[in-house]
Amino acid sequence: MAVNVYAGAYIFMLAAFAGWVIIGNVPAILHTPLMSGSNFVHGIVVVGGLFVLLNATNVLEQSIGFVAVLLGAGNAAGGYAVTVRMLEMFKSSDDKPHHGARRRHAAHRATKA
């Protein structure tokens, strides 16, 4: 697939606009997971690393390509792991574990009354 410089400029412009709009109304409560989540998304660079490494023709290209895949894989895997971990912690009081807590509170109040 060939992307010439004109098509490339359009892709960049539209993607930048999409990124701006998508993030535009994220609440401050999610700023940290969002940063690590977008960090994860640029881990797609590992795909470029794989292309370069699989097409390597000498030891120099193999070594640098190896580093590219190593670092890219770290970016993608690590970014995903921390983002999921953080987001799974965000619970609403309506979520199941807290129903139990509420019932306990209610029971507590009832016994006191």
Partner: peptide, 15 residues
């Protein structure tokens, strides 16, 4: 790569 990279570029700038 172009799209993912540039989406993050713009989102990161806004953030």
């Amino acid at each position: 790569l172009m799209i993912a990279g540039m989406v993050v570029g713009a989102a990161g700038t806004l953030l």
